[in-house]
Amino acid sequence: MKAINITFKFADGQPEQTHVAAEGESVLDVALNNNIQLQHNCGGVCGCSTCHVYVLAGADDLPEISDKEEDFIDRAVDPRLNSRLACQCVTQGNENLVVEIPKQDFLGH
């Protein structure tokens, strides 16, 4: 299996972190496995918008966004064109990922 680097940037000013993910792991799983605080009220099943992130690089190697994910992103705080749900960003392909975790001082849907 191919190892993919995921670089986490933080809107709250924490220093960025880079961690290795195995192909098929979600960004949410990698964050939680490395003690990165990322809300996930639904448990990572695409049932809320709390694991909302911005994909800054590597989006072409992620699965296509589903209608369900898009609906939840529309409910997130400050959605952008590069918004995704970390639970749905499953690593695949060859490209490394860079994601930004927005400030999480709110309760999402």
Rank of each mutant, 00 (worst) to 15 (best):
M1P: 08
I4E: 01
N5L: 08
N5T: 06
I6N: 05
I6H: 03
T7I: 03
K9M: 07
F10V: 01
F10P: 01
A11F: 02
D12H: 05
Q14M: 13
P15R: 14
P15E: 13
P15F: 11
T18L: 04
H19Y: 14
A21Y: 01
A22D: 15
G24F: 07
G24A: 07
S26W: 05
S26H: 07
S26L: 04
S26N: 09
S26G: 02
V27G: 06
L28D: 04
V30L: 04
V30A: 03
A31W: 00
L32G: 07
N33I: 09
N34Y: 11
I36F: 05
I36K: 03
I36G: 01
L38E: 06
H40A: 13
N41P: 08
G43N: 09
G44Y: 04
V45A: 12
C46E: 06
C46L: 13
G47T: 02
G47V: 06
G47S: 08
G47A: 12
S49D: 08
C51V: 04
H52G: 06
Y54R: 11
Y54V: 01
L56V: 07
A57P: 08
A57K: 12
G58D: 01
A59P: 07
D61K: 00
P63H: 04
E64M: 10
D67E: 14
D67K: 12
D67I: 07
K68F: 15
F72V: 03
D74G: 13
A76L: 07
A76F: 04
V77F: 15
V77N: 14
L81D: 15
L81C: 11
N82I: 01
S83K: 01
S83W: 05
L85G: 03
C87A: 04
Q88Y: 06
V90K: 10
V90L: 09
G93Q: 06
G93F: 00
N94S: 12
N94I: 06
N94H: 12
E95L: 09
V98W: 02
V98A: 01
V99D: 04
E100H: 08
E100P: 02
P102L: 06
K103D: 14
K103F: 13
L107A: 15
L107H: 15
G108Q: 12
H109S: 15
